[in-house]
Each structure stands twice: as structure tokens, then as C-alpha cells.
Design a binder for these strands. Structure first.
Lengths: 334, 334
DNA sequence: TTGTAAGCGTTATCAA
DNA sequence: TTGATAACGCTTACAA
């Protein structure tokens, strides 16, 4: 391993001088020696030791990305939204010259542990961490950026999207296409801010049009027999004609079950998703869905993170990105 | 920040004693003091400083996952195979008590840099790194696990699958179902061992059955008008009836373009994919595909990594996992 | 069973 | 513009 000292000896200077050069502290070292040292470092294949750096400077160029680990059987990155966001984030963070650590967390204690143990410069939370936010902020005095949080904690730096508006867009589009009896498919909304807001926006527009969403038109994510539920919805004297899902992933399930039951999309059932994952363009029929710009979200997240790392005491900031409707082929005009 | 010294002072012992307790060096510290120290550490919220550890011990409990970064516009984790594998790997690595660092790499120098700078204990390469393997091994004397490599370097630790057999399975299934004129869709095979082996296996079975794959039945991944190509294949006097794609992702594209062109799957064109991503069960019709067990692959990778970390000088080992055919609905019996 | 001392590679601080 | 020195928090090696 090549150290500053090795280079210093070869160059006939002190290791401090080398350190200064390696850190680009221009103006403090003469052009000449600077050039010379750079050349020697290059030749010797010098790689700075980040651990030593972190130890001495009490900070590291390291960002932690924290993902919720539900249970050990479930792979968090199998969710395309999550992996897409993480992938974009990693790209941005690399551009900023930081390294990225990936952490799955199950309970609160793991989070603080991992952040502290590596002296990370900042952290990005992907998924639901609402309950622990207050404590996290108290225990970790580094920039923490949350995403899609609807925590009641007010002083929180968050990047989210206009979920409510997304729900409205879906409902408006259904109405515009003549649908009057629609359904919703997603996880229990009560404990999930994202889902709840999407649902509320959806319902609010319907209500204004004099349409209510009866209990039996909610299908819960955990349902055993999704196909059966779809068939039930689409039959009877007042059949459902459209279903809004809280995520594209859910829409794909609907597609699959509808196919198995012989329900045509959009002929028998129209579908609107949420996210606009790349797969949504590819499914048959292409999915009409509420689009969020995941790439931009990652970019904004990273920008915010860097700002917070570089300037102390920035005020909490909650950024809400726009959504739009990607109109494709999964909704029928009635 | 709570340090060993802080605990030591409170407990009235030296920091070495605390260090021993924190590292579980049982037998070297009396039960009594051990218990007492543990309690104090707990109370004070002690978190070991990994940087200091890494520096002092010249090793870290850190694994690097390296992903190929093709260009800055392309998100490596948008590929479901990659994100799925990474996700499973992260799960396993966490179970082993290691932390995971995610690195995108464009060229060789970045790799060694990131490995050395953090003193990582081992690294997993996801994607094509064939050209740099030799140099990587020379420069980094830590366990390096490659995946899906067909490098000509013989002493390499690799976890892959039987790509050739996968190609055979696809061809056999086509033949069994009466298909005699088939096509292939994927990237240029020449520089990609994985694709090449899948293709070779495919072709070999066809050849044994007296069937050849003419040049015009190869569709290149980068083609501008995939839909047009499909239409071309499926028309004429001797139309293609089945297409084998080198990855499920490619099959999804075929689905999409076929749909746009009014080609029915499997009515007009049968499709066989490769990977068996979770989406393949959900598409319409469900995709018949060569299955690889990504979870197992990640598990084996992690096991191999740990073995290599814990015991020096293990011989190179190339593990080849089985593939199988997931028979679904995208191939028609002729 | 416990402690002392040195050192890991770097940066911060002060002095020259 | 440069250098000496003392940390940073921990582990290794050895001594008691």
C-alpha cells in the first residue's frame, strides 16, 4: 500500500505537503513541487485511504441509502420503483464524488448504528420511515433526506411527489372517458401516507362528480383471489368499468389476473396505474398511468443532500414534484 | 460520539478491556467485567467506529458490489435482472454482518481505486468485466467474485449459470412444439460470452434436428424498427413461428412490438425468454422462459465470498448453476 | 485476566 | 510555502 509518507520520502518533502497536493489545496504549495508530487503519486499508484481520512477529519465522503427491509424473504430491490430510484441516485451521487452504501433496515436501532459507524456524510431514506423520523433526527446530526414521507414531523427534509394530484388525474381521466363506477386496488391506506393521498385525490374528484366509492370497490393488496375479485367487480347489474391502482406493479397484477379470468383490458375493465415504470410502455395494452419523474426525483434528492452537507443549518425543505398522466391504451372510452 | 475510552473510564478499566468485550473475545475477560461493560456500552449508546477499525486492523467488514456503468444516461438498476441480483446479494451480505458498497464503474482504474480506498474485504462483479480481470487480480489481493464471466483467464472465481444448456432447452421446446423456423433476438453475441453461449446452445440443438438459423433470422438488440423486423419474419412463404430472446427484457420488447403490429403471441409468433424475472409470470400471455435461480445465485456468490475471505489461498472455483424451463403460455403447439 | 505502548494513514493546528 | 506534532478511535503485540 502506498501512503503519503512513501510519496513524501521519494519527493523529499513532508507528508503534509503531499497531503495538501492530493487534496488540491492549490495556492498553498508551489507549482513546481505540486507537479512533481502529483507525478510521483501517479507513478506509485497512490490511492488515498478513506478510512484514515474519515478518522482524521471526522467525516467521510460517504452517503447511505436506507431501504426498508420488510422480511428476509422479500427482496426490496425487486420493486422496480425502488431499484430505479436507487439506480438514479447512485448515478448522481457518484457524479458528486461520493460513495454509496446500501443498507437494509428492519428496525430503528440499525439505522443509527450504520450511520454512525461509518461516519457517513448524509443519508437518503427510501420507503416508509415515518415513525422513526423524530428519533433519527435527534440521534444523527447529519443531513437526512426522506422521500415520499407524510410524517407529521414538520422540520423534515423530504422529496416527494404530488400524490393527491395523481389520484385526481386518474379520476378525472376516468370521468372524461365516461366511467362512473370505478374501483381502487392497493394496500391498506390507513398507515401509508402515499397510498392514502393518492386515494384521497381520486375519491375527491369522484365525489365532486357525485360518485361515491363503495366499500366493496376497494380491493386490498393482500387479497387471496384478486382474479375472483375482479370478476365480481365486473359483473352484476352495475359493473365496475375502471380500476385505479396505487402503483404500476399492482396494475401488472391486475393485467395478469384479468387475463386468467378472460377479462379484456380495456374492453371489460379499464386500468390506470401509478409511477410510469419503463415496463408500463411494454405491457399489453400499454398502461395509462400517473407519471412521476423518478430520475428527477433522484436528482433533486441528491442536490438537496449536497446543499445540506455543504452548508450548515439549512432550513427544512419539503420538495413536491409534479405528476402527469401518461395516456396510453388501458382505458376505454365509454 | 462515544468511544472505547469513554466506556473504559466509566467502567474503571482500560480501553483494551472494553475493546475485547466489544469484539466478543470471550474467555479473555472475566464474566463480571464483561457484563458490566456491555451494560455501560449499551447505556451510553456506543457504536464502534468502522473507519478506525479498518485503519487499525487493515481490513474492513465491507463488500463492494461493482456494476458496469455503460453511459451516464443509462441506469444500470433499471435492468430487473441486475437489481434483483443485487437485492438478494445485499440481503445475504447483511446476514453475514458485512456492509455493502455500491459502485458504478466505467473503466478499470475506477475499480481498483474504490476497492483500495475503502480497504474492502471482498468484491462482487455484476456484469461484463472480462477484459480487466487479469489486471484486477494482480492489483487487488482480496477475494474477487465474478458473475456470468466467460473470461479466458482460468484462475477466476466465478458464479454463473449453464447458459448453453438454457439455449438448448429453448430450442428443444420449440422443436417439441413443432416449430421448424425460428429466430433469435439479442445483442451482438460476439463480444458477450453469456449471449454467445445461449445462442450456441440454441443453434446446436436446431442443427442436430437439421435446422439452420439463417442470418436474416437474427435480430440485433439495437435495431431501429423491431416491430418491422418481426413483421418481416412472420410473413413471406416460410414464416418464422418462434423467437428466442436472450433475456426476458428482450421478450417484453417483442411482446410490445408484436402488439403494436397486430401480431398475436403465441398465435402468430411464439416467444421464449431467458431469466424468469417476476414480471414474466404477469405479462400477457405469461412468458415461457428459461429460468435461472437468481436468489440462489446470490446466495452462492455470498457463500463463496465469505469462504474466500475467511480462508486464505483457496483455489479458484467456477460454479455453474442449473437452468430449467418455466413453461407458460407464450409458445404455441403447432 | 488486564494493561501498556505503538502504530494504522490521514488531517488540523500551529510554528517557521 | 513548508514542516513538526498531535490527534482521530481502534487493534496488535507484548508485558504484567
Amino acid at each position: 500500500m502506498v501512503t503519503l509518507k512513501d510519496i513524501a520520502e521519494k519527493a523529499g518533502v513532508s507528508s503534509m505537503t503531499v497531503s495538501r497536493v492530493m487534496n488540491g489545496k492549490t495556492g498553498t504549495v508551489s507549482q513546481q513541487t505540486s507537479e512533481r508530487i502529483k507525478k510521483i503519486a501517479q507513478e506509485m499508484g497512490y490511492v488515498p485511504n478513506s478510512s484514515a481520512r474519515a478518522l482524521a477529519s471526522r467525516s467521510s465522503r460517504l452517503i447511505a441509502a436506507l431501504l426498508q427491509e420488510y422480511d428476509e424473504e422479500r427482496n426490496p430491490l425487486e420493486d422496480s420503483y425502488t431499484s430505479c430510484f436507487l439506480g438514479e441516485l447512485a448515478l448522481q451521487i457518484k457524479k458528486e464524488g461520493y460513495d454509496l452504501m446500501l443498507h437494509y433496515v428492519k428496525d430503528y436501532s440499525e439505522i443509527t448504528y450504520s450511520l454512525k459507524s461509518w461516519n457517513v456524510a448524509g443519508a437518503v431514506f427510501i420507503g416508509m420511515f415515518d415513525e422513526s423520523i423524530r428519533k433519527l433526527q435527534e440521534d444523527n446530526h447529519i443531513p437526512l433526506i426522506f422521500t415520499d414521507s407524510y410524517s407529521s414531523v414538520r422540520s423534515i427534509t423530504n422529496v416527494g411527489i404530488d400524490d393527491y394530484r395523481g389520484g385526481e388525474l386518474a379520476a378525472e381521466y376516468f370521468l372524461k372517458n365516461g366511467h362512473r363506477n370505478v374501483a381502487f386496488y392497493g394496500p391498506e391506506a390507513l398507515d401509508n401516507g402515499v397510498v392514502m393521498h393518492r386515494l384521497r385525490g381520486f375519491v375527491s374528484v369522484l365525489r365532486k362528480a357525485g360518485i361515491s366509492l363503495p366499500q366493496e370497490n376497494f380491493i386490498n393488496l393482500g387479497v387471496k383471489d384478486l382474479g375472483g375479485e375482479l370478476v365480481r367487480l365486473c359483473s352484476g347489474e352495475n359493473p365496475v368499468t375502471g380500476i385505479f391502482t396505487t402503483a404500476d406493479n399492482c396494475a401488472y397484477q391486475v393485467y395478469s389476473e384479468a387475463y386468467r379470468k378472460g377479462l379484456r383490458i380495456p374492453g371489460d375493465l379499464s386500468v390506470i396505474g401509478f409511477d410510469d415504470l419503463s415496463m408500463s410502455e411494454l405491457v399489453t395494452p400499454p398502461l395509462t398511468t400517473v407519471r412521476q419523474d423518478i430520475k428527477k426525483k433522484a436528482l433533486v434528492t441528491c442536490e438537496l443532500l449536497m446543499k445540506n452537507i455543504n452548508t450548515a443549518d439549512r432550513p427544512a425543505e419539503n420538495i413536491v414534484l409534479n405528476v402527469s398522466l401518461s395516456e396510453r391504451k388501458s382505458v376505454q372510452k365509454l
